[in-house]
């Protein structure tokens, strides 16, 4: 069974059937296997963020259902949602979303502290994520004292320190320069390949998407197309993604 199953999910903002109703998602169906790295691409307003919010249980769909590891998210009681989000999901945001009142180490430990993890285990888990992310040197600094690329790695560390089933990333490279973006994507690949971390990433960046196994294209709230990496290397896959995007936007490949 797939880790994540999205079945016929629809989302309408405003009152159904009225003129002000806006359809953000319509009949979205796809699934993500364990250990897969999936990218979702689409224009602004295509519904990517709404989709990610629903997957992250930050928002409720108006139609359809989402299953994570066989569990229907809509059956989660209100009180369970935060715990579920904290323990089963990891989030990485475009703006890092680090808390300035904690130093970087405490930012990473935040979800563990909230789950009442024993101190010894917290320390072990921290050490486990510090090495692959190469953040040892910034642990005692505050988020506002490090660069964007460093901050984003801290945010990734926070997202994976709970060993989440699914890592959700919303435009993680959106605020980074190209070299920081590249190194972040290398980290995602390492996490995916060496630690079998399942990743679902929403992105604008073709270069970032080319790191995934599979790219879903979304337009006007519908899944429009999906392409698999197959045996391609990053460069070739990037090329194919770019072509798909051109098609998606109604362009022709031959002009």
């Amino acid at each position: 069974m797939a880790l994540l199953e999205v079945k016929n999910v629809g989302k309408i903002y405003g009152k159904k059937g009225t003129a002000s109703a806006t359809e953000a998602l319509c009949q979205v169906t796809f699934s993500v296997e364990r250990g897969e790295f999936v990218a979702i691409m689409g224009d602004s307003g295509s519904g990517k963020t709404t989709l990610l919010n629903i997957l992250g249980s930050l928002d409720q769909p108006t139609d359809g259902s989402v299953f994570l590891d066989g569990r229907d998210l809509s059956t989660l009681a209100k009180k369970q949602i935060s715990k579920f989000r904290r323990e089963e999901l990891g989030f990485v945001f475009q703006d890092y979303s680090l808390l300035n009142n904690f130093n970087n180490k405490d930012n990473i430990l935040l979800p563990l502290v909230l789950s009442n993890t024993p101190q010894k285990e917290m320390q072990e888990r921290l050490m486990a994520v510090v090495a692959p992310l190469e953040i040892q040197d910034y642990l005692t600094k505050y988020p506002y004292e490090v660069s964007g690329g460093q901050a984003q790695r801290i945010a990734v560390a926070r997202a994976i320190v709970t060993y989440p089933k699914l890592l959700l990333a919303d435009e993680p490279t959106g605020a980074l320069d190209s070299s920081s973006s590249q190194s972040l994507m290398r980290i995602f690949q390492t996490l995916n390949q060496n630690y079998r971390q399942t990743i679902l990433m929403v992105t604008h960046s073709v270069a970032a998407a080319a790191n995934a196994h599979r790219v879903l294209f979304i337009k006007d709230g519908r899944i429009y197309n999906e392409i698999y990496r197959g045996e391609d290397n990053n460069v070739r896959f990037e090329d194919r993604i770019a072509k798909s995007l051109t098609l998606l936007n109604g362009g022709s490949l031959h002009d």
Partner: peptide, 11 residues
Amino acid sequence: QVSIMQAVGLE
């Protein structure tokens, strides 16, 4: 701060 705390899973 509050909106970040919500996003990282605080009730």
